[in-house]
Nucleic acid binder design. Sequence first.
RNA 1: GCCGGCGUAGCUCAGUCGGUAGAGCAUCGGUUUCGUAAACCGAGGGUCAGCGGUUCAAGUCCGCUCGCCGGCUCCA
Length: 645
Amino acid sequence: MPNIVLTFPDGATKEFPSGITALEVAKSLGPRLAAEALAAKVDGRLVDLSAKLEESAPIQFITPPSPEGLEIYRHSSAHLLAAAVTDLFPDAHPGIGPPTETGFFYDFYRERPFTEDDLKKIEARMQEIVNADVPNERVHLPKEEGKKVFEQMGEFLKCQLIEEKAEPVFSAYRTGKFLDFCRGPHIPSMGRVKAFKLLSVAGAYWKGDEHSHPMQRIYGTAFFSKKDLDDFLAQIEEAKKRDHRRLGKELDLFSIQDDAGPGLIFWHPKGGVIRKEIEDWLRTELLARGYDLVFTPHAMRLHLWETSGHTNFYRENMFGAMDVENDHYQLKPMNCPGHILIYKSRTRSYRDLPLRFAELGTVYRYERSGVMHGLMRVRGFTQDDAHIFCMPDQLESEVQACVEFAFLVLKTFGFDRYQVELSARDPQHSEHYAGTVEEWNLAEGALKNTLERMNIPFKHMPGEAVFYGPKIDVKLVDAIGRPWQLTTVQFDFNLPGRFGLEYAAADGHPHTPVMVHRALLGSIERFFGVLIEHYAGAFPVWLAPVQAIVLPISDKHLGYAREVQEELRRAGVRVQLDDRNEKLNARIRDAQLQKIPFMLVVGEREAQAKAVAVRRRDTGDAGSRPLAQFKEEVRSLIDTRAVKW
RNA sequence: GCCGGCGUAGCUCAGUCGGUAGAGCAUCGGUUUCGUAAACCGAGGGUCAGCGGUUCAAGUCCGCUCGCCGGCUCCA
């Protein structure tokens, strides 16, 4: 039998007899590697340890700390789940079961739903399979014959998958009695699964199609060690504590009221202050960047939305039209048509361009009842919207300015986790898109060039563009790891044409301008939600609804306490006085729970020295200092919009 | 919209087998005047989400509606 040569990641090479398994190779390198390895990567392909190696190739072993290893491990954990479920519930038919960012799930078709109790039983059965170290065996089946095997087992969903996806000879994995149509690879045996937990049951649709079978999805997670699992579970608990819906109530920032309707936000005074600070900052920056501030009506004639194409392309997201004097009016789901009407209100010259119309525009969109989520997904929200009307050769610099602006937003509000995506058209289906190929090439090129020139890593998302143009999206990642889209910069090849927009060019002829639609914060509501979770309610001083609170030791010191409050108030600090008949400790506790940045304890000593004893919400007692000095300190934190101090 | 869970005082929650409503915090009144995370005493507060049904009797059982939560689908 001929020998093969395997090349290891460090460049070393070694000869082995052809047909040796990856596991045997691992063993030859060391028992520890053999015990730890989960799979192997041969010639760039992930394979099982049981794979027979018959050709010379580079080889690498996948071991626990690696992300690839974790993915395989969790995929196998999903099989572990399915093996337990099919064992306990013969009426449950497995669908698909992939690993996810944070764990895995498996979808089952079953008449009766799974209960919390069922989850416990399933977990126990999973543990038994782990304890028995049941092997994961890869088998190869010819398509028709293999399909029959699954048919005999009654697994009609698997048959459907095989029909659609299987190669002429496909692979399947056997774990005890459970057989799954699966590409693999998998860990050699279930004894390798060290720490797992089932988290929840939820509804899903077969293949994500809401007209298809309803499925029951069991979510779980798996880690290489008990400690990692415990850390993850603790992190979920932590995330719950900073859930903006909970903090919104605790800190009295906003509410959603049954009497008013779902998805409609009431900004309470404390949330209102934060919104005002955000908006003030934003307007200052907009003006500094050559934007004009405009305001447009909330409801406009329906025919306007017919012209814009919204009644065709956006109908399912719009509230129903209202009847007004034999006409129909539409609550606006977007601000663009309004801005376009301002553009159209007079003739425009190339000398006017670019025109940048910005509006904190409140829009209303119909969202299906199950999708609302606190501030993150609502039916009425305010976009920090703007439409830039420009000439084609101004595109790149305008886009760059938008992206720079977006990054200033991130920096100003202290965000560090984000993802940038460039959504382009699907070149296979140019019929799905408005505009010419030249326009698209120009626009996509402008977006791509801008990101590259700015050295911003981004994900290319072909086919994700909207029908009227490509876009750049910036997503922020919240406390529970969910990404939320905020910034969007998109081209629009549709509306300028539909509305017949023109400008007089240098050649004296009318030309159609290019339109850029952009929102940086996206929606003020969603942005606020992300902000709350990001800071867990402990806002930077410039945003904190109450920046300092004066706590007199007893009411003998009320007079001085009022002086302190008055002086700080005159300096523009949002300062409260807690003169309640409560012990100092109790008032400190309440101030801490309200996450007020500074507590100013004043008693005899402070009154004598015109001082305040400062307690910071994060590090506690910070000692006494002259009131004038403290005033300077807070002022500077506010003026510099310090995120950390 | 779909699947599942849930809805009791302003908030967080208890309420057994169907027998007529309870705690802590908050609020209000009083006492206490206090040096860095909860003083003490007392009082008020409920259409048990809404509507209908079963029953001698419903917070509890059944149906419908509304809303919330976890997902799916769709999105800023």
